[in-house]
Each structure stands twice: as C-alpha cells, then as structure tokens.
Design a protein around this nucleic acid. Structure first.
Lengths: 145, 145
DNA sequence: GTAATTGCAAATACTTTGCCACGTA
DNA sequence: TACGTGGCAAAGTATTTGCAATTAC
C-alpha cells in the first residue's frame, strides 16, 4: 500500500503535477481504499474532508484522469466513479443493482483478444474496455422475499 | 421494424402497461433508431416532442425498465442512455471518447461463460453484463494532429 | 368507476465554471 | 517570479418528485 502510494505520487509528479496537500491526500485515499470512489466519497474522506474543497478534488481528478493515473467509470449511479489506473492491471466489477455494492472480480478478463481485433479492424486509438456485471446480490434477494 | 414494434407493444401491454400515445411513440422511436438513446434524444424525437412532456417520457422509461423492456446503460456521458432489451440479443458498444459516437459491435460477446461462473459462484440473481470499448476514433485521431 | 398515467412546476443531485488569492518550483 | 493550484460562490445540466387533472380499461 505504502509502495503503491509512493508509486502513484511519483507518476503524478513526473507527469507534471505539483506536490500539494490535496494531491497527497487524494492519492492516499485512493490507494488506501483501492476501489472505485465517487467525487463525494473522496471529498468526504479523511484528510480531504478537512483540507480541501470539493471543487479542488474535482479538478484534481480531472488532471489525474488526463494524465492516465485514474480513470472515470460509469457504474450506473448518478455520480461518476473514479478508480486508480495501475499499469498491467485490469479490473472488472460486479455490482448489485439493489444496494449498489461494488466488488472487483478477480477472474481473468476474457475480453482482451476481442479488444485487439477491434483495435485492428476499426483503427481506434487508446482503446480500452470496461466490463461490469449487474444483478441482485444474495443478501438483497433474500431481503426482497 | 414494424414487426419489432408490434412485438414490443405486445410485451408492454402484457406486462400491464396501458396503451397510451406516449407508449406507442416511445416504442416507435426506439424501434426505428435501434440504438441507445438518452432521455433528451427521445423526448425531442418525432411524435414524442409534440405529444409528450419530458417527465412522461422519463417515467415511461422507468416503467419499461422495470418490466425489462428497456435497459439503462452507463456510457460515460452525463446523461443516461436507454436501449431496447430484446430477448436472445446482446449488444456491446464501441464509443469514441472524443466525439461521443456510439456503435454496436457485432462480434460475438466473449463474456457469457464468465457470466455463468459468476452466477454460480456468487449467487447473484438476474445477472447481466455490460461491455463497452472506449477509444479515439480514426476521424477524431486525425483531427487532433 | 378506478387505478394508471400525464403535464406542469418545483426541488434535488451532481458537475462544471469564473475569478481572484495562494503556493510550488 | 510565473504558472499551476486552491477556495468560494454561482451557474449549468440531468434527474426526480408532488399534485391535481386526465385517460385507459
């Protein structure tokens, strides 16, 4: 975890971002939780809630997104989610449509070959994919009946 | 197309929805375009723009979604997209992050087996998935340089 | 007749921008 | 010092709800 944080900070710095309290706090928060978080989650989390305005967090997420350090995900909530983008790593998610819980799937993602085909056939650049499974988790399913 | 519309109307009716002008118009619109559309797209489209309030379209989409006739998609735009849910059919999408264009991918989706594994391992009910590819389309890529 | 559906208006939620002050390099 | 960054306030966009009037069944 500590290692991850150091690494992220290094990437951020070398891509031109300044080392500010907000940057440290947001990377710490993302590294500690290591799951997709909304702007609201982040700006009410730990140091961020005390030290930074939500606008700051928003703009910082924009910059981190531009630099390829985080990625914005669309997970069906009204609010956007942001997740760390760690080279060599890819995550798919399983989401309960009732309670909104989000968990990462650790099975290998079966989409890479198709992605390669699409890259070649369409000429799209910077291609990546997002895969999510939606359903009702056992807990919510039993609560319904 | 006509067939599709008839079919949708039948499904809607038999799931308990009343046959109103708004229902006919929205199903016509979705069947004609057969691509994901936002609430804004829909309510400014054809008959809907003249005959229905946007709130009506919104609530109708909610009901159609409850009944499993349309599905809400998260495609990274700020606005939600809605697409027809046609039994036996599954669509993945390729989206340009620059111009926002959305096209359906016709290659067979490689995720079904994983989906089955997840269903069995996690006990999730009503499981389905959403797969999208994002990138820069050739047109936008050349416009950038 | 009854319950579902509709329209209009208003409220909410989340995101985004403007502007000037501040801090890092 | 210069330019990226931060805070506060306000605007923008999309969604959602309340309620009375209307319509399908």
């Amino acid at each position: 975890m500590q290692k991850l944080y150091e690494n992220l900070l290094e990437r951020a710095r070398s891509s031109g971002l300044r080392r500010t309290k907000a940057l440290e706090a947001i990377l710490t928060c993302l590294a500690d939780h290591n799951r997709p978080m909304t702007l609201g989650d982040l700006s009410s989390c730990g140091h961020l809630s005390k030290q930074c305005d939500q606008t700051t967090v928003f703009r910082l997420l924009q910059r981190l997104s531009d630099k390829g350090i985080v990625r914005r995900l669309g997970l069906h909530e009204r609010a956007a989610y942001f997740a760390l983008l760690i080279p060599g790593t890819h995550r798919d998610y399983l989401i309960c449509t009732e309670c909104g819980s989000i968990e990462a799937i650790d099975a290998p993602c079966p989409v890479h070959q198709l992605e390669e085909e699409i890259r070649q056939e369409t000429g799209f650049q910077n291609l990546y994919h997002e895969l999510e499974f939606f359903g009702t988790c056992p807990k919510c399913a039993s609560a319904q009946s």
